[in-house]
């Protein structure tokens, strides 16, 4: 394989992985922007979303698209519920209490999945039963000599479409305006007659829906479903959010893509390092926090006494 083809192959892989990270990272960044809370359970909401899709398809033998829609809706509801049950009572508590609760929630969801769905890995591709739908998984396109699976393009295009919708919601709609207002000043926003808790609940639902969408695409690419599958993608997406500047949605996109590219390219150009793949992102995190804690696109926070 010559250099250019090798590069092209990795380029598309990185674009896809980065896009998936970005989709998960948006959920972190929106919640952090509003509540200054790291929603540790976010990666596990993604995992639950994948299970929802899996069981909808397997138990009710519904087509994959319906299963995906059910899963996204289910994850949105789950995100909303988690906020209501676990985080809302702690709105006025010290921030660290909410963080500890979020860690607890993450482990709760993981063990819930172990108990209800079982710890055994399940092949996600089972949800594609008909011949036509299997084409999505198996077809390979030739681009400039590189063999790129159709799935890669599909994921990239879907991610783009989802982001377009997201930007419309956040920057053009009324509820998006309310979200941005809350991230600046909660008491003042409440005084303007905005239902703050409703908007926060909506933010959780939106972020969780995106996580589920990303999780379903993730499971098509790395086709195993298991209760701890959300941990690593969740951690990395969080790192992506921090690298891009937490609280900023364009930052999440930049950070996600950056992380995807660094990961894919270091592993493919230095194959001996592949065992350390998961460690790279943490090293990047520590470096960025040391030298530019506000991230690439983040605003600098001023500490008031």
């Amino acid at each position: 394989m010559n250099q250019e083809v090798f590069f092209l192959q990795n380029f598309f892989n990185a674009l896809m992985l980065g896009g998936l990270y970005a989709l998960i990272a948006v959920g972190y960044t929106m919640v952090y922007g509003i509540l200054r809370l790291i929603n540790f359970a976010h990666g596990d909401i993604m995992m639950m979303g994948v299970y929802f899709a899996f069981y909808t398809a397997v138990l009710f033998s519904s087509p994959p698209l319906i299963a995906a829609i059910v899963a996204v809706a289910g994850a949105a509801g789950l995100g909303f519920l988690i906020d209501r049950i676990a985080y809302k009572p702690l709105r006025n508590a010290p921030r660290i209490s909410a963080l500890i609760t979020a860690i607890g929630m993450s482990f709760f969801l993981e063990s819930f999945a172990v108990v209800v769905f079982g710890a055994v890995q399940k092949p996600f591709v089972q949800i594609f039963k008909t011949k036509e739908s299997k084409v999505i998984l198996n077809k390979v396109l030739m681009v400039g000599g590189a063999r790129i699976p159709l799935l890669t393009f599909l994921v990239i295009l879907l991610t783009l479409a989802i982001f377009a919708v997201l930007f419309l919601i956040v920057y053009k709609s009324k509820i998006g305006m309310a979200m941005r207002a809350i991230s600046m000043d909660i008491p003042t926003t409440a005084l303007m007659g905005i239902n703050v808790d409703g908007v926060i609940g909506f933010t959780f639902a939106l972020g969780s829906a995106l996580a589920a969408a990303s999780g379903i695409m993730w499971a098509m690419r790395y086709p195993n479903v298991y209760p701890y599958m959300g941990f690593m993608p969740g951690m990395k997406a969080f790192i992506a959010a921090v690298v891009g500047g937490i609280g900023s949605i364009p930052g999440a996109v930049v950070g996600g893509l950056l992380l995807g590219f660094i990961e894919i390219f270091t592993v493919s150009y230095f194959p001996t390092m592949s065992g350390y793949r998961d460690a790279f992102s943490f090293i990047i995190l520590i470096l960025i926090l040391m030298f530019k804690p506000s991230g690439i696109l983040g605003k600098k926070a001023i500490e008031k006494v």
Binding site: I38, R95, L99, M235, V242, D278, A279, F282, L289
Partner: peptide, 22 residues
């Protein structure tokens, strides 16, 4: 320890993961 709050939590978690991966 140059960091505070949540950032410190994540960075230290990251350190523990790096050790484990190592």
């Amino acid at each position: 320890l140059r960091l505070t709050g949540d950032y410190l939590a994540i960075a230290s978690l990251g350190f523990a993961e790096i050790v484990r991966i190592w």
